[in-house]
Nucleic acid binder design. Sequence first.
DNA 1: AGAAACTGTAGTAAAAAAACTACAAGATCA
DNA 2: TGATCTTGTAGTTTTTTTACTACAGTTTCT
Lengths: 209, 209
Amino acid sequence: MKRILIADDHAIVRRGLRLLLLEEYPSAEIGEASDAETLINKIIQHEWDVVICDISMPGRSGLDALSQIKQMAPKLPVLIMSMYPEDQYALRVLKAGAAGYLGKETIHDDIIKAIHTVELGKKFITPTIAEKLAKAFEEDQSDQLHEKLSDREFDVFKMLASGKAVSEIANQFALSVTTVSTYRSRVLEKMGMKSNADLTRYALEKKLI
Amino acid sequence: MKRILIADDHAIVRRGLRLLLLEEYPSAEIGEASDAETLINKIIQHEWDVVICDISMPGRSGLDALSQIKQMAPKLPVLIMSMYPEDQYALRVLKAGAAGYLGKETIHDDIIKAIHTVELGKKFITPTIAEKLAKAFEEDQSDQLHEKLSDREFDVFKMLASGKAVSEIANQFALSVTTVSTYRSRVLEKMGMKSNADLTRYALEKKLI
DNA sequence: AGAAACTGTAGTAAAAAAACTACAAGATCA
DNA sequence: TGATCTTGTAGTTTTTTTACTACAGTTTCT
């Protein structure tokens, strides 16, 4: 009698997933949430065995929700789904505590396998991701976040970290404000951070400024 | 043959000051600037003995200009004028390197006296300010900037320093965004800082977060 | 007691930033 | 050698932030 909670903003996806799961576990209890808030509430109100959560719900909230869940219920396994291929974001998601990453190539069997795996408290790692993990580990990527930045991104990063406004930076580099803004987004994305203050903290810690 | 540079955005004030100065120094060379940029340019182009600068030129630029001047020409004495009474901001101005603070009660004689004083490389301090200085010193105010904040301001300060957005804070305290924004302005003003990154740095240094 | 300053609060309007989107050229991986 | 990623760049639209301003209680000097 599994209790599985699905979070995705597309009703179609939820429906598909539900059918797929019921096929395997006919008597399972399936919950649905269409946004991060509902997801959190359902987790508070009820116990679940596994959560399957799309990362790109409205408002970038997949990762946010994940960290919130990890605080509230550290043991509840959360499988993160994504429409993106198994790129570097998979690592970030795992770092944030996900029990597994289901990329866009994921097929039926993978999902069932993933559920079995994470229920045992283990992580579901596809071979592709395993390799990335190994590489990341070797490069100690997690400790040198900023090395993943391109030159331009790094410039922008340093200036943001020291408190410069996007417009100031644009001015100084003679770029459009939106360009600098895009760099900022990428920097935050790549470094898995969400505010300039995080950048400042990081830079201070690493003595980059 | 004194060379005095006046910076104020009101033509009337510049004119009045010019006449007043010429009365005392008939052969003085008087320069005028109506905004911070012009002020900086005139300082680059020409040597001056004293600068008299209003603190509230368009865009909060009085203090900014002062620190820029202090970097370019550390020895050039800058007298800061202000329409505000000699309150706590006088201290901030002095801390930023001004040679003296001329408040709204300043009279003719004070200005002349101030010029004489600062030309000798000394600071022009009125008794009122001297007292404030002493008190500030005693309280080591300069090292405990955050103690000047009110409770609400301090709350907001901490949250800003840890990277919360104004809107998040407003939400959490159930206040209007503009209210929180006002607190932010006051915090920045009181602490003599200009960006959230400064707050973060300060808070980290003092281990407040 | 009275003036001046400080605090908590918010509206309006203007400015800035963020999210999204797009695209071409170069890098890379399979 | 294609397919996929990354990088540099920017426009549009939506959301946030900021600058000003205001105002009524409190507190604080004189």
